[in-house]
Computed example of a mutant assay.
Amino acid sequence: MQETVDTPQAAPAPAAEPNRRAGAAAFRPSLARRARRALAPLPWLAPALALIAFVVLWPVWEMFQTSRQHINSYGFNLGDYGWKNYSTLFADPNLGSVMVRTVLWVFAIVAITVLISLGLAQLLNRGFPGRKLVRWALIAPWAASVMMTAIVFRWMLDPNNGVVNVFLHQIGVVHDYNGSQASWLGDPTAALWWMIAVAVFVSVPFTTYALLAGLTSIPADVYEAARMDGAGKWRTYRAITFPLLRPALLVAVLINLMNVFNSFPIIWTMTGGGPDYQTSTSTVYMYALKQFNIGESGALSVVNFGVVILIVLVFLRANRSALKEG
Results as ranks from 00 to 15, higher is better:
Tyr237Pro: 02
Phe261Val: 09
Asp276Asn: 15
Leu250Ile: 08
Ala252Gly: 00
Gly295Asp: 10
Tyr285Asp: 08
Pro247Val: 09
Phe242Pro: 07
Pro243Thr: 03
Val302Cys: 11
Leu245Phe: 04
Ile294Ser: 01
Ser280Cys: 11
Tyr277Ala: 14
Gln278His: 10
Ile255Asn: 13
Thr269Asn: 00
Phe264Ala: 06
Gly230Ser: 12
Ile255Thr: 14
Thr279Ile: 14
Met258Arg: 09
Pro275Tyr: 02
Asn256Ile: 09
Thr271Val: 07
Asn259Arg: 14
Gly295Lys: 03
Val302Ala: 09
Asn293Val: 07
Leu244Ala: 03
Leu257Trp: 01
Ile240Asn: 12
Val260Leu: 04
Tyr285Ser: 07
Gly272Phe: 03
Ala252Met: 04
Asn256Tyr: 09
Val284Leu: 01
Gly232His: 09
Ile294Ala: 08
Thr271Met: 04
Thr281Lys: 01
Ser280Met: 06
Pro243Tyr: 08
Gly295His: 03
Val260Asn: 11
Thr281His: 04
Ala252Thr: 02
Val303Leu: 13
Ala239Asp: 13
Gly273Ser: 02
Leu289Ile: 07
Val260Glu: 10
Thr281Gly: 05
Leu257Arg: 02
Thr236Trp: 08
Thr281Met: 02
Ile267Asp: 03
Gly273Ile: 00
Thr279Ser: 13
Met228Cys: 03
Val260Cys: 11
Pro275Gly: 05
Asn293Cys: 00
Phe261Ser: 04
Ser263Gln: 15
Ala288Ile: 04
Leu250Pro: 04
Ala288Leu: 14
Leu300Gln: 05
Gly230Asn: 11
Ala299Gly: 05
Ser263Asn: 15
Asp276Met: 10
Gly272Arg: 05
Phe261Gln: 09
Ile294Glu: 06
Ser301Lys: 02
Tyr277Leu: 12
Leu289Lys: 02
Val303Thr: 10
Thr279Cys: 13
Met228Asp: 01
Gly298Glu: 06
Leu249Pro: 05
Leu245Pro: 04
Tyr277Asn: 15
Phe261Gly: 11
Asn259Ala: 14
Ile255Gln: 14
Leu254Gln: 13
Val302Gly: 03
Gly272Val: 07
Gly274Trp: 02
Ser297Phe: 11
Asp229Phe: 01
Lys290Asp: 11
Ile267Gln: 04
Pro265Ala: 14
Met270Val: 06
Trp268Gly: 00
Tyr285Val: 03
Phe242Val: 05
Tyr287Cys: 02
Thr241Phe: 13
Met258Thr: 14
